[in-house]
Simulated assay, not measured.
Amino acid sequence: MPRLFTGIEIPRDIGFALSLKRGGLHGARWIEPNDYHITLRFIGDVDAPTANDIVDNLERLSKTVRFDLRLTQIDSFGGDKPRALYAAVEPSDGLNRLQAAHERVIQQAGIAPEGRKFVPHVTLARLRGASSDDVARFLSEAPVFEPLRFTPTQFVLYSSRDSVGGGPYVVEESFPLSAQT
Rank of each mutant, 00 (worst) to 15 (best):
T6P: 04
Q154V: 07
L20H: 00
M1R: 02
P49Y: 07
K117T: 15
P11H: 04
A125C: 14
P33Y: 02
S163V: 05
A112T: 06
V135L: 13
D53I: 09
G110E: 13
P82L: 11
L139D: 04
E32K: 07
S92Y: 10
V164S: 02
L124S: 03
L98G: 11
T151I: 13
P2V: 07
A100F: 05
P152H: 08
S174I: 05
F118R: 07
L40D: 10
L69F: 07
N34M: 08
E90V: 09
G94K: 12
L157H: 01
G44D: 08
F5P: 07
S159G: 14
V135K: 12
P33S: 09
A130L: 09
E103S: 05
H37K: 10
R12D: 13
Q73C: 07
V164M: 01
N96R: 14
F138W: 15
A112N: 10
L58Q: 08
D80G: 08
D45W: 01
F5N: 06
L139G: 01
F155K: 11
E172R: 07
Q99V: 15
E59R: 14
I74N: 00
D68A: 10
S140K: 12
D134R: 11
G23S: 06
P11M: 10
S62V: 04
L157Y: 01
R104L: 15
A88M: 05
S160H: 09
S178G: 00
Y86W: 15
E146Q: 14
E146D: 03
A125M: 10
H37F: 05
G94C: 11
L58W: 08
S19Y: 00
G27N: 12
R60P: 02
S131D: 13
D93G: 14
R12E: 15
P152Y: 03
G94R: 05
V46H: 09
G115H: 09
L148Y: 03
H102T: 02
Y36G: 04
L148M: 12
S131Q: 10
D13F: 08
P2L: 03
Q107S: 14
S140E: 15
A100K: 15
A125K: 09
H37E: 10
F150E: 00
